[in-house]
Nucleic acid binder design. Sequence first.
DNA 1: TCCTTTTGTCGGCCTTTCCGACAAGAAGA
DNA 2: TCTTCTTGTCGGAAAGGCCGACAAAAGGA
Lengths: 375, 375
Amino acid sequence: MFLQNLLMADNKSNCFDSRLWQACAGTMVKMPAVDSIVLYFPQGHAEHAGVNVEFRSDVKIPSYIPCRVSSIKYMAERETDEVFAKIRLTPVRLSEFFETPEEEGMVKIGSDNSRKPLSFAKTLTQSDANNGGGFSVPKNCADTIFPTLDYNVNPPVQTLSATDIHGKSWQFRHIYRGTPERHLLTTGWSTFVNQKKLVAGDSIVFLRNENDKISIGIRRIKKKSVAMEPETSPWWFPSVGNLTIPRGGFSAFLRDDHNTNSSWSLINRGNVKAESVIEATKLATNGQPFEVIFYPQSTTPEFFVKASRVKAALQIPWCSGMRFKMPFETEDLVISWFMGTISSVQANDPSQWPDSPWRMLQVIQTIFSIYIMLL
Amino acid sequence: MFLQNLLMADNKSNCFDSRLWQACAGTMVKMPAVDSIVLYFPQGHAEHAGVNVEFRSDVKIPSYIPCRVSSIKYMAERETDEVFAKIRLTPVRLSEFFETPEEEGMVKIGSDNSRKPLSFAKTLTQSDANNGGGFSVPKNCADTIFPTLDYNVNPPVQTLSATDIHGKSWQFRHIYRGTPERHLLTTGWSTFVNQKKLVAGDSIVFLRNENDKISIGIRRIKKKSVAMEPETSPWWFPSVGNLTIPRGGFSAFLRDDHNTNSSWSLINRGNVKAESVIEATKLATNGQPFEVIFYPQSTTPEFFVKASRVKAALQIPWCSGMRFKMPFETEDLVISWFMGTISSVQANDPSQWPDSPWRMLQVIQTIFSIYIMLL
DNA sequence: TCCTTTTGTCGGCCTTTCCGACAAGAAGA
DNA sequence: TCTTCTTGTCGGAAAGGCCGACAAAAGGA
């Protein structure tokens, strides 16, 4: 059988370039390393599924299960280009969790920014998305990402090849013209917009890899837009007085209080099934390896958290009135900071999940509730 | 590494459908079966390369080497869609050649025509190739190959998907309209013409496989056109008086006498290198397995000939004045017959290759020389 | 030979897309 | 605040592509 056919057999495909995957997921999404130790939270997994998961009431489910990451597959939906990861987890003894060195899994944000920025994102304007028009290329993007034009010819023009997350190549005419002059993508752009079904508000990411090949990724606009809603599960940096936990933290999630309590802003609704959660939890509880699917663009938090981060967070005496600051990423990959005060600390669902570190996430949730109310 | 990248790593690709390969090569090109016995002719191989091959003079090279076909890979150039085959041959003892049953390798031309014709070829007109226009579909092609249109709607229209030799899918709008009404391919056609760099005179082949999937192949026009030049290496059917050797014969090749003697009409010039010929001959002479590349659209003959055919041909007392008839295939896959008289029988290069059955091909060459002179 | 069927080419018109003009917005002085 | 630089939107212009008309070519009687 022909290989290409194999790849197209279902609506998923292995990711062509893991850096493009990262750019689409958002630079603030940090996946754990293979072989590192994480805590798996069934409760978080259920919330990620976005449906009410009915666990069997006769079996006691632990609130967290320490696991070793066996493998991670970076993938993308063939239809929408939405990125997701397939993670294989193997339960380990709790002692292994505590034996993990403190430093393991720490991520130095910005440490790989030593080189020139290699990616550029732009939210599509009405003119960009209206087919008929081309794409207005921000000067920075053309200067730092695209191959340099020959400005001696008039007008300067070249063919730009960009590869999408599935490895499919797209060609665009890149021209520098107009008064005042600006960079534009013309021929090929409308085909891309139509085939990817892009609309104004969607973002695209251009990425230049080490061989100067260009990749092009998509981040779709959220259907239910909440003003300034962070696009990805943000990592937050607690800053308590002078105490700052360096480069660690939890993911946060966002309850959309404009709707009912059970309604979550999800992009992946329906992609993670309740049965998968029950199956994963069953295997995890029995100490058997299991597989979970994670959609980073979902607004629910990661439900597998690096051991070192959990330990860092547990050392903070969380209480009301505590001030904090938290970074989040907007559509254009710009990292902004939100500062506020913790109003209350409580477990998310105390009756079913007593004493779960998962309640920490409730803190963040509360913060966001306040945040939205202030707008 | 991503699979698709692997496939695109060089400018060759494994053929998507061997029947499409056959259609592009021409139905008169018959490849030997795997495990069958053939004669390999170093001289023919050298001519196929289209360059002067300098064999080492100190080693005596046999004029033919009996071989068993170990494997055949059907392939296509990624850039031009030109089909070729990679054939692995293992030298065998001459006794194995003679032990081959007479019937082996016999090909019954027309035996698989029992079903409706499943392929249709058309040479592109100026209007077909001019971008701006669509493609005028012959009625027969639409009726026998394409999915049947719903003639109740007005105008009858559908989307036609066709897969090229690399497995890439192309979409065309197939509409039945105009006065008088006719079948046309509109949207999608000009993209195909531009990307494949088709010009008026090139042929395309539509093929319907057992699952009613449509394939689309390309046969490019020869650069140096000789009027009524057969497009593929023809098989010929000698007919001597009442004696007709059934369904056997040699391939023929065509010397273009309008040019110098050493100039051959080649489509694959430069694709088969002299070094490959020397390497293959060296291995073959030493009795070791070797690999050859064969371009069926080349106008040089096959340089590996089925054992049974050689034996059949050797039984004919070739001499001047003998009348013969020979089928050949035109661009549109129509098989025509050419009849003539043998003017002389001589070895192609008697000093280097005495007593080679390869001289039989010289007969055909002579016939064609006469043929061209008559035009 | 004549008639019918099929299909190649053409000009008209509609749609798409390419273009500079202009101005709104952002950034810097 | 003013100036400069950047980029979003618009209407006109050019190109591409779909259409039936017509006639040439092919095939059958």
